[in-house]
Every structure is written in C-alpha cells, then in structure tokens.
C-alpha cells in the first residue's frame, strides 16, 4: 500500500540577489517532483548539493513551505489536516538528520531526549522509563548509559540515540536525511546495518536522502536521482545502478572512487565539465544541458518529460528516452 505520495511538489524560495538586497529572484529548490513510497519500502533520493533532495524531505515534514503540489500520507492530503490529524500524522512520521551532535540537547541525559516525543504525545509517565530502556536496547545501546549526556558518547552512539528517539512513537515512515554522512567509515556500516535490521523488525518505510551512492546501493529498493530541483531518473535500485539511462546518473556512478588501486587509470570515467548552474538562473530546457556530454541543441528548448523506459523505470532525457517511444 502506498504510504506517502508526493504529487508535482514545488518549493520556491524568494531571494534578494542585489548587493544591497534590491533585485528579487526565485530559487526553485524543488520544481515539480512526484514520488511515492510504499509501506516497508526504502526509496532513496540522491543527487548533489542544491538538487533539492533535502528540501523535498523537509516539505514532507512541514519544514519547508509547499508552493504547489500535494503531499498525501496514507492517501490523505496533509495540507487539509486539522490540528489533531496533523499531530496524529507526526506520530507516524519521524526524521533522522545528518548531524547527531546538533540534533541532541547537550544538557539533557540521553534518556530524556529519547523520552521527549513520548512526553509530548501524552504517553503515561509510569511507562516511559521502561519504554526508553526498550528503545535503547533496540538500537544497540546499553540502558545503563541512560543518564549520560550526548557529549560522553561517540558519534555512532549519538546517532543511535537519535534513531531511538525517532522510533519512540512507533512510526511507519522515517525520513533519513544523510544519516551516516557525518560518521567515521568504520561506524557507517554499523548504522546502516541497524537501519536495515529495524526496517525488517518494525516494518518501517524509509525516505532515504543521501549523496553517497555506494551507501544507497545497499539500502534502497527504489532510487530517484535529482538534479536542480527535478527528478531525472527513477526506478528500482537494480535498474538505476545496473542499467542507468540518464547521462547524469551515469556520470554520478562513474565519479564514485573505486577502492581498488589496481584499476587506477584503467577505468573509463565520464568527466563532466563545468559546475552546477546557479539555481537562481537555471538553463531553459533540460537543467543538465550545461554539463551533459550527449546534449543536442533541442535539449535547450523544453524540459523533457519523465518517460517510462521499463517497468517502474522512468527517465527524463529526450536523447535517451524520447517522448512517444515509451514502453507503455
């Protein structure tokens, strides 16, 4: 069953661009994104900085203003929720951010941090300490550490605290925004394994926002690749990684350093020229046109449509997936 569906979401931010705050511009951080996430599924949203992946997650959480489009949770439009419905939805939907240091109050014991959502949502106070111990064990923390402050914990342990807090209200959906990026390499895999185990045990769905494709490869069922506010490719992880169709996805995959020095210099890497265009001044037509190795003049004219190339695999590229040639 579809748990979350994002329909043609737009998040535009007005900005002052002149040196003295004069001229006004519009940053189209998210500009027409449609995604859906089923129960117990992991959908990864990937892309480089400024592509709009975090803003998409923030819009779902109500932390970014929705300019246009709809966000449906369990089939119901979140914009039409009344206060009670919104509060109920927040129980079902939690978030884990990148930086566990700033996500935790340094003066509070970790038990208090984990208990906070339970207190806010009126959990019987006699049951809270037991529930906190249960949650700490669930994420691999020793309940004897409950009175510690975050400062006495390592980065990996702090992220476990953040995850325990996110699970306190037994949510159905956890939005993970770069959950392992700030962690040491030897700790990353511990946390990824924890997230995968929790998904199995608790039937969670993850909206997994990340820039590291090797991490995403391990955890995602489906992947959406974003570039300058739009989805350029979306499909099952096996298709997007195994048979990428959009030239940006190809470049992104080939740019990942491979930990094998024997391949040094022998690997054919797609070199993208130039930088990401400014989101204030995106090129007309396909946003990737300024760096695309296969662009044609017509790509500058209109934004290509997201075309089905295979079951559930959609690509927005008029060279690789011309409109009308769809596999319907």
């Amino acid at each position: 069953m579809t748990l979350l569906s994002i329909e043609d979401l737009k998040v535009h931010f007005p900005v002052r661009t002149g040196r003295f705050g004069g001229a006004k511009g519009l940053v189209k951080a998210v500009d027409g994104v449609s995604l859906s996430l089923a129960e117990r599924e992991t959908l990864a949203v990937v892309g480089e900085s400024g592509c709009g992946k975090s803003t998409t997650g923030n819009a779902v959480l109500g932390l970014a203003p929705v300019t246009a489009g709809r966000i449906l949770f369990e089939g119901r439009d979140m914009a039409r929720f009344d206060e009670a419905e919104r509060k109920a939805a927040w129980r079902e939907m939690q978030v884990v951010f990148q930086d566990p240091v700033s996500a935790l109050n340094p003066r509070q014991s970790i038990a208090r941090s984990i208990a906070e959502p339970l207190v806010i949502h009126g959990h019987p106070s006699a049951e809270i300490p037991g529930r906190v111990d249960e949650l700490m064990e669930l994420v691999g923390l020793n309940p004897d550490q409950r009175n510690r402050r975050p400062g006495a914990l390592s980065g990996g342990q702090r992220q476990r605290v953040v995850i325990a807090r996110a699970l306190a209200l037994s949510p159905k959906l956890v939005i993970c925004d770069e959950p392992v990026s700030a962690l040491d390499v030897s700790i990353q895999s511990q946390i990824l394994n924890l997230l995968m185990r929790l998904q199995e045990e608790l039937g969670l769905a993850y909206l997994f926002i990340a820039h590291d494709l090797s991490v995403v490869r391990h955890i995602a069922d489906r992947v959406a690749v974003m570039y300058l506010g739009i989805v350029v490719e979306e499909g099952p992880a096996s298709k997007v990684f195994g048979d990428p169709q959009h030239p940006y996805t190809e470049a992104l995959l080939s740019a990942i350093p491979v930990p094998d020095p024997a391949l040094k210099g022998r690997r054919q890497r797609i070199r993208l020229e130039g930088d990401l265009p400014s989101p204030l001044d995106p090129p007309p037509g396909c946003p990737f046109v300024t760096r695309c190795p296969i662009a044609e003049p017509a790509c500058r004219e209109a934004r290509p449509a997201l075309v089905d190339v295979d079951e559930g695999h959609r690509v927005r590229c008029r060279v690789r997936a011309p409109e009308g040639a769809a596999n319907s």
Binding site: V185, S186, Q188, S189, Q190, L192, N193, M196, R197, D212, L213, S214, V215, R217, H218, I219, A220, D221, A237, S238, F241, L253, I256, V258, P259
Partner: peptide
C-alpha cells in the same frame, strides 16, 4: 567495511 557498488545489496555489511 566500505560499501561498494559491486556488492550484493540489502545484506548486512561487514562492520
């Protein structure tokens, strides 16, 4: 422990 693109997905990573 490094996640690699050529490993089978959805399995526990070495840690």
């Amino acid at each position: 422990t490094i996640p690699r693109l050529d490993q089978p997905p959805k399995r526990a990573l070495y840690s």
